[in-house]
Design a protein around this nucleic acid. Structure first.
Lengths: 147, 147
DNA sequence: TACGAATCTGACGTTAACGTCAAATAGAAG
DNA sequence: CTTCTATTTGACGTTAACGTCAGATTCGTA
């Protein structure tokens, strides 16, 4: 198990405030529901930090809203729940199910990232064309002005 | 000259509302200041549509705030103003200055787009690694479960 | 066990980027 | 000139994503 941490440390490592973390939990993005008495301090692990950092990244790089993020996470958990009903046998099967549930989530994230990158590629190409036209036009004008 | 248009048509073509266009003008991003009597309808050209679409794109793809966009645009106009003081001679020199003023702006946009794309590339690579690990782990677990 | 720093739980405040509404007006069409 | 629709200005409303504050409480430490 990784070292236990409290909200302040997690916030600092993820580059957000404690308020943000509480708000994300309130929205259902973070935290282990039902494992904390009212008033107790929240306890996090290394995996939670990684998770939070991923969410922040999706938010910042793709501009996803918290609703979007909730959608992603819920899709993950819905799959996990469906799989969970089907058969609850050994501990190894349990792990398989966890792994299988997270694969479509990562695939979805990949789609989002790639789609955005494609759009940026197209934008970049247009800007380069435009820059080329401007530079060409500039030298043409300079030639004309010098004549 | 390209066909003249009013705010409704511009809004539809750019995929925004008229309110957004007025707000952008209020923030100094759009419109030709001092060329309209109070109460008159706003008149736009094809170039204005292109300009607006670019702003929308920077906003949506990069998540730039209106303050960010104002910063970009002001940088452009500041250069144009500086250049304008220096020498005001012929009409051709005028055009050179306009072209020269817009080059750094396009370059700045290119930087922003490329920087964002780099980050997305890195994110994409990480997600693919993660996906590979998950799939490998899945087949390992299945093998173990079958034994 | 007493202390002090960090955390907890409400609750209300803030900002950007528009949405919405009303009354007046502009401008194209007949 | 009338009519009708789109537009204008001004003002207030809305939402997401936290910020901020206060008083109570928890938890590592001396």
């Amino acid at each position: 198990m990784s070292r236990a941490m409290r909200i302040g440390e997690v916030a600092e490592r993820a580059g957000v405030t404690a308020r943000t973390i509480r708000y994300y939990e309130e929205r259902g993005l973070l935290g282990h529901p039902g494992t904390r008495e009212k008033g107790e301090h929240r306890v996090y692990t290394e995996a939670d930090v990684v998770r939070l950092q991923e969410l922040i990244r999706l938010r910042d790089l793709l501009g996803l809203s918290l609703d979007d993020l909730v959608g992603l996470v819920e899709a993950e958990e819905a799959r996990a729940a469906l799989r969970g009903q089907w058969e609850e046998s050994s501990t190894d099967e349990e792990r398989v199910r966890i792994v299988e549930a997270s694969i479509p989530l990562v695939e979805k994230q990949l789609e989002l990232v790639q789609s955005r990158r494609d759009k940026l590629d197209a934008f970049e190409a247009e800007l380069e064309q435009k820059l080329g036209r401007l530079k060409r036009r500039r030298s043409e004008l300079r030639r004309g002005a010098a004549a």
